[in-house]
Write a protein that binds this DNA or RNA. Structure first.
Lengths: 236, 236
DNA sequence: ATCAGTTCTAGTCAAAATGACTATAACTAG
DNA sequence: CTAGTTATAGTCATTTTGACTAGAACTGAT
């Protein structure tokens, strides 16, 4: 019985490197159809291993910041983006993720609003890709993107994450477009609206969106809390 | 509080310690009602900080094992248990989790079958607690247990994790007892059975459980795969 | 052997949710 | 003023859910 090894979390061990990465999602209008589609920004690797391949933005964890703060900071530094939603995705710690050393990556996923995404830096070393067409990425980042996409779809279908793609006020059609873009389906406007309006987190305002080409749609507001994750639990 | 900036930058270089912990769930008959209830094993801390308080079983990550392997190994070493299900819960990395140093804990949760749980070592330094009455734990382990409990309930309600508490063959009543114990409700046997039998992952066998006091119930088998987590995705 | 007690499970029925569709309201462009 | 388009209430058949009934199948006591 190893009761002496039970509480050795403080023992010094040949520690693997700890890194933080983030999968950032934003909706941008497709060039072809004009309808919104899912995009993610990637950064070009400027050194080995996987030099010149695209990879998720990431970096080390510094001593005086929490994991989520590290993700937010890194995301801002590499892409210039301020996300409206950040959630931990998974800790990836397989033995052969990097050919040169043992790296444990704690990966976050984030949503940014289209206004933010439009302002985003794009350069030689930062480029946006359609989430379903990223090509071959460095390390195990293809698997990470796939898993993040799966998680986003899940959260959208069962959670209340769609509103973080949008501003404070939005129309039912805008929410529907988010669902259609992420889940890649078409939804009946009438039935979709009925369901949204039966959820208590959606508040109807007296305002209407003016200036469109057709009948002005009513504006709504999201009043729910982001999530139940440990990082987000006690936010007042 | 560090007024010396040299001190701060010195500390910033030091990498945080990486630890693996596990929240282990098992069903055991309650002493009072005889009905199954949720229990978790905890280990006593034998040194500071939090000496003599109870804590989750855990330990360091060694260099030649994956995160999940580390969780399984550690769980076996500290409690003697072989789990039927293991899933990553969350990476906890708050700044002040441990008073003595910065620790990032990657926490797993696991289920063990009652036959396993009955064989489990119990000693001066390993003891089982009812999951909803663990008392004050070391570090942030109360919050971790709460979150694990929330996740277990969620996975039970929306996923297909109940069967890992049971053996290969089980009756509908046994599955119902798992749900009732974890979600702490009573469910209508007839309606519950109807729903289970409409899920394709549940296979009806021709066998019946003999030897009971009343009408012998039919035995079923679970044919689904554990989960869609990165760790469990490509298990053949 | 029969009956009382219990569990197992098919079945009934009303209420609620869902999916496909219709109709009307409200705007703009011409 | 009208044609075109979007917004949204409403209709109706189908499916799912929750509460309940009743018969089937066993054990143990009489």
């Amino acid at each position: 019985m190893y009761s002496s090894s039970a509480n050795v979390s403080e023992r010094a061990v040949a520690a693997p490197t700890l890194a933080i990465s983030t999968v950032i999602f934003a909706l941008r209008p497709s060039e072809s159809s004009g309808r919104p589609t899912l995009w993610i920004p990637l950064v070009r690797r400027i050194r080995e291993p996987f030099k010149d391949l695209w990879a998720l933005p990431g970096g080390p964890l510094t001593h005086n910041e929490s994991l989520q703060d590290a993700a937010s900071r890194n995301l801002r530094e590499t892409t210039g983006l301020a996300p409206s939603y950040v959630e931990q995705l998974y800790a990836f710690g397989g033995l052969h993720r990097s050919p040169t050393q043992r790296v444990v990556s704690i990966v976050y996923w984030a949503l940014v609003q289209p206004t933010e995404a439009a302002l985003a830096d794009e350069s030689e070393n930062v480029k946006w890709f359609r989430a379903d067409k990223v090509g071959e990425l460095a390390f195990d980042h293809n698997a990470i993107v796939d898993y993040a996409l799966w998680r986003l779809r899940n959260k959208l279908a069962y959670g209340s994450v769609a509103y973080h793609f949008l501003g404070e006020y939005f129309t039912l059609a805008e929410v529907r477009e988010v669902y259609e873009a992420v889940l890649d389906t078409r939804l009946d406007p009438a039935n979709f609206g009925r369901q949204l309006k039966s959820t208590p987190e959606i508040e109807e305002t007296g305002e209407y969106l003016q200036g469109g080409k057709h009948r002005p749609p009513r504006l709504y507001r999201f009043t729910g809390r982001p999530g139940l994750d440990p990082d987000n639990r006690s936010t007042p």
